[in-house]
Design a protein around this nucleic acid. Structure first.
Length: 204
DNA sequence: GCATTAATGATAA
DNA sequence: TTATCATTAATGC
């Protein structure tokens, strides 16, 4: 079966609809909780994390995105405010298209509309799979669930050599576990051949 | 040197 | 068993 990957929208096309290039510094806010979604965002270069904070002020990361990926798209089809924040985690260049123009683009390009549908569906599918693993008490199950989810995003589906480009702290914030638990668990998992660690980098 | 990230040990819940 | 706290080592700028 041919998988429909999450194709980014052609940058030229976006620009022909009036998209702008925006740059963000590390740790700069892109949008915050309760903002009204007004733009389609696609990453040209850099990285973005989507998170929020619980009552104790602890961070929970919902997602970390890289080059070529879009975010916040689901909010453009509904009238709801953001429930999360988005931050640049490194110097980042985005291409940004206002909501109305995005809708125009989608209306005039049914094929792209279908791709966006497939993309959103795929994300939902893997998110649900991950949620299933996340309620597990076993730290290794949560980590595996997260890694499977992350791998589903990447184009390069090289089995066994997917490089997890997250710090252990970020993995902890994504799984709701402590960083020490992550460190100790992934070492155990390496011994069980569930993943590889080379040069402190995690390969799954 | 300083900041960040990773690793490890001790102890409490 | 995991969280928490403290400490130390390694890494990158």
């Amino acid at each position: 079966m041919k998988t429909i990957s999450c194709m980014k929208i052609d940058e030229q096309l976006l620009q022909s609809y009036g998209a702008e290039i925006k740059t963000y510094k590390e740790k700069e806010l892109i949008f915050r909780e309760d903002d009204s979604p007004n733009f389609y965002y696609q990453i040209i270069d850099g990285g973005v994390k989507v998170n929020n904070f619980n009552d104790d002020g602890k961070e929970f990361i919902h997602n970390i995105l890289g080059k070529g990926q879009s975010f916040g798209d689901a909010h453009l089809f509904i009238e709801k405010k953001y429930t999360v924040n988005a931050f640049a985690i490194k110097p980042t260049t985005l291409i940004v298209l206002p909501k109305k123009k995005f809708i125009n683009l989608v209306e005039e390009h049914p094929k792209i509309s279908l791709e966006i549908n497939a993309c959103l569906s795929l994300r939902l599918y893997f998110k649900m799979k991950m949620m299933h693993d996340m309620v597990s008490q076993q730290p290794s199950a949560r980590i595996l669930g997260l890694f499977n989810y992350l791998r589903s995003y990447t184009d390069c589906e090289d089995q066994h050599s997917f490089n997890v480009q997250l710090t252990r702290q970020q993995i902890a914030d994504l799984t709701g576990l402590r960083v020490e638990t992550i460190i100790r668990t992934i070492k155990k998992m390496e011994k069980e051949n569930l993943l590889k660690i080379e040069d402190r980098k995690i390969y799954y």
